[in-house]
Design a protein around this nucleic acid. Sequence first.
DNA 1: GTCTATATTTGGATAGAC
DNA 2: GTCTATCCAAATATAGAC
Lengths: 208, 208
Amino acid sequence: MLGEPVRDRRAERHAATRAEILEAAWEQVRANGLAALSLRDLARTIGMQPSSLYSYFDSKNAIYDAMYAQGAQQFVDEQKASMRTPDDPLEALKAVLRFFVNFCAADSARYQLLFQRTIPGFEPSPASFKISEDNLAELGELLARCGVSDPPMLDLFTALGTGLTDQQMSNDPGGDRWVRLIDEAVEMFYQHITNKARKPGKGRRPRS
Amino acid sequence: MLGEPVRDRRAERHAATRAEILEAAWEQVRANGLAALSLRDLARTIGMQPSSLYSYFDSKNAIYDAMYAQGAQQFVDEQKASMRTPDDPLEALKAVLRFFVNFCAADSARYQLLFQRTIPGFEPSPASFKISEDNLAELGELLARCGVSDPPMLDLFTALGTGLTDQQMSNDPGGDRWVRLIDEAVEMFYQHITNKARKPGKGRRPRS
DNA sequence: GTCTATATTTGGATAGAC
DNA sequence: GTCTATCCAAATATAGAC
């Protein structure tokens, strides 16, 4: 009898159409806001009827979920590609933060989907969320290698990252008013943890 | 002829109903998310027909705008009430940041409305936005009195505030994991600007 | 897999009687 | 000012022919 064909052309085409749908979805949310995704418009821009989308995704939230997974994967890939971590701890921390802020600022809809929860009914599926979790764990290890292993200091560092990101995107979208501050912010942080290491105790230094 | 009545009972009642509508609107967005405000549900919870709302607000966005104005005013009032600014600059900065983070964390829907832009068609009216602007200017003056007058350092300070806020609300809602870090963050920041003042130049200090 | 047709829900907003 | 009645638009989702 005949063997199974090596390539499944049908599956390939299916995947390609799925990708096309997602690409159109990204364009739509980038243009009109994350919450404004509409299956009608989406189908229309790729020359389909709205109902045909259901051959590729079970629901609107399934589309959001696929987008979430894509975004999280982009984070992993771009980090691997663009961020050859320097050996020097201080420079490594700067590189991490620079990457994070730039990645977020590059696409505010993606940022909103990955890091905020503004879509009323949506939350990522366990499979999609795992990408983000693994990612965060890896970041933790990297920071540990830079000497940031104290959990509160890790929290402070992430707050620095999201703060610069948030301000940049909210108050100077497309500019670099807060991006410019990244290096100085990291130096401030690094100085702080270095001082702390020298005089531990309660974590407070005398005022003068 | 008869004089004008001193009190306009009709206007008073109108204002009271407006307030009642807004209170119900806040409850709804706190429960279901800012974007999920629905005029039908809103009218229903206060025992009205949806169309009756139009006697008080011209549109859904007019309701959002009134909520925005309320939130901004609450910020002003609560700041005035709860935050007797200490004389010591460091303590004053801590008080400012503590107030900001706690105010935001107390109501994430309000935070989203005031400080983020997640409602597709909405932006505050000039009148409502002015409350926020005046507020921000006042914050600038306060920080200037604390020795933070360099604009980039002001930006860094605000980033610290939004970062702690964002992390607290996103990753530990109802807790205090990042609230606990406020004092230390401000000390770190204050140490930084103090050092900078001692050795100006390019704003960078030698690494060791 | 795609289409037509349609169900169903929900939303914001208006007209006109009372 | 409030109601009833309705309009209109848009949304998600399903059924069934081809």
